[in-house]
Each structure stands twice: as structure tokens, then as C-alpha cells.
């Protein structure tokens, strides 16, 4: 199968004082259509920088990114991002419905069609009845659901998820994990999830990429075969789940900088 997203020799160096800061060094991988890939790494290893380069929001210092075989320089059609900071990524002057409509701008729908679709998507993420609410009238978990609906609205083949669940409580987190996986399968989307939570990375993915500390490389690729259906209790007790979790945690502990805290 041909790759949906490919990165080759990706590197990013920020000019800094007194020395330039090397964030990414030689990152190469591919994501197939409808595949769910997780990226984990020690904190501060440049996961967000990597995602911004893949989304075409940040030019890499060297290397290349291709989406559907086309080089990525600007944000390409067919790629959506769910940002880490949901409270800042929603427009506070627009309602939930209008925020979702924003994701459809590239589809060229009529006003009424866009509105209907936005409401359908909000219902899909469990926000029926909150269409007219403003982001600041919603709880953190609900705001992130709006952001997810907005990313889905673009009918993208690839969702880039930047720690989308880092700031919500544990119960909401479990709900949103299942929601995200369910929707990605329903809309036949590939997902690339960046997270610092190893459990989340393994639970969600078909494959996990483990990153080193800065300058960041890919330490290992861990394929998973946990099946299409996941369950918050059963999946997390499977021996292969636990084995993968153990392998990744060991790698990350070894990759932590000297003297870093627990």
C-alpha cells in the first residue's frame, strides 16, 4: 500500500543564543491510509515541533515531508490538526457551530449545508444542544470535543493530534480516547497522535514510534496487533499490551536526560 504521509531525513534547528538549538535530527517514517500511529518520547523532546513540520506550519531545516506524494510546504488539503491547547485554538468570538464551520472552508459548502454538517458533527462528538454556546461557556473536555469536530469537518484523510487529551481529567480522557478512535475508523481517517502518555500511545495505536531525547531521532518502531476493537479494561490487561508498554517505558526511561526527576 502506498504511504499517505512520508517524512525523510527531517531536521529542525532553531537559531538560539549562544548556540543554535537542534531539536530534530534525521527523522524518517511513513503513515499508511487509515493507520493509527502514536509518537511518544521523553518530555521536551520536540514532539510538537515535529507535528508542526508535518502539518506544513513550520518549515524544516532539512529533509522533506510528502502528503499523497506531494511535497508539503503549506498546510495541505486533507490534513487537519487538533492542537494541544484547546482553550486557545478555538475562536472565542464564535459559537461552537461557527468554530466547526471554520474547518469546512476548503470544502466549498453552502451556508446552510455547512451549518447542517457542523451540527451533525457536534452531535457525533456528543455536543448536541450546545451548538450555540461559546467556547468559554463549555468545560475543558467539551472544548476539546469542539476542536475534534472542527478537525473532522475538513473530511481530512489524516488527523494530526498534538497531545489532544493532555489537559482533561482521567474519565473524560478515556471517553475521548474511545471517541477519537471510533470516529477515525468511521470516517476512515489515518491518525498521528503525539503524546507523552505511554498507556495512551499503546491503547490507541496500530504502531508506536518511540523518540529519543533532544536532538530527537526515532529510537524504535513498536508494531502492535491489539485488534480493531479496543476496550478500556480488557485491552489494557492483554499480555501483548503490557509487553509493548514495558518495552516503551524502558526505552523512555533510558532516554531521559541525566538527573531528570521521576
Amino acid at each position: 500500500m502506498t504511504a499517505l504521509l512520508e517524512a525523510g531525513g527531517l531536521a529542525k534547528v532553531f537559531p538560539g543564543r549562544p548556540d543554535p538549538v537542534e531539536i530534530l535530527r534525521d527523522i524518517s517514517f511513513a503513515v499508511a491510509p487509515e493507520e493509527f500511529v502514536s509518537i511518544v518520547g521523553p518530555s521536551g523532546c520536540g514532539k510538537t515541533t515535529l507535528l508542526m513540520c508535518l502539518a506544513g506550519l513550520l518549515p524544516p531545516s532539512s529533509g522533506w515531508v510528502r502528503f499523497r506524494g506531494q511535497p508539503v510546504t503549506d498546510p495541505p488539503r486533507g490534513v487537519s490538526v487538533v492542537f494541544q491547547d484547546y482553550s486557545r485554538s478555538l475562536l472565542p468570538w464564535k459559537s461552537a457551530r461557527e468554530n466547526v464551520t471554520l474547518g469546512m472552508r476548503r470544502l466549498g459548502l453552502g451556508r446552510a449545508a455547512a451549518r447542517d454538517r457542523a451540527e451533525a458533527l457536534l452531535a457525533e462528538v456528543g455536543l448536541a444542544g450546545f451548538e450555540g454556546h461559546f467556547p468559554w461557556q463549555l468545560s475543558g473536555g467539551m472544548q476539546q470535543r469542539v476542536a475534534i469536530a472542527r478537525a473532522l469537518a475538513a473530511e481530512s484523510a489524516l488527523l494530526l493530534l498534538d497531545e489532544p487529551l493532555a489537559a482533561v481529567d482521567a474519565q473524560t480522557r478515556a471517553d475521548l480516547q474511545d471517541l477519537l478512535r471510533g470516529l477515525a475508523r468511521k470516517f476512515r481517517q489515518a491518525c498521528l497522535l503525539v503524546t507523552h502518555d505511554v498507556d495512551e500511545a499503546v491503547y490507541m495505536a496500530d504502531r508506536v514510534l518511540v523518540l529519543s531525547r533532544r536532538p530527537t531521532r526515532i529510537l524504535r518502531e513498536v508494531p502492535l496487533a491489539l485488534g480493531a476493537e479496543r476496550d478500556q479494561i480488557d485491552t489494557r490487561e492483554r499480555p501483548d499490551y503490557l509487553a509493548a508498554r514495558h518495552e516503551i517505558l524502558t526505552l523512555i526511561r533510558a532516554a531521559r536526560p541525566e538527573g531528570a526527576g521521576a
Partner: peptide, 10 residues
Amino acid sequence: VLLSVGRMAG
């Protein structure tokens, strides 16, 4: 972040 959102919306 809002600028990134705008760029993603094209």
C-alpha cells in the same frame, strides 16, 4: 495557535 488554526483552514 489561532494563526495556525487559520492556516489549517486555508
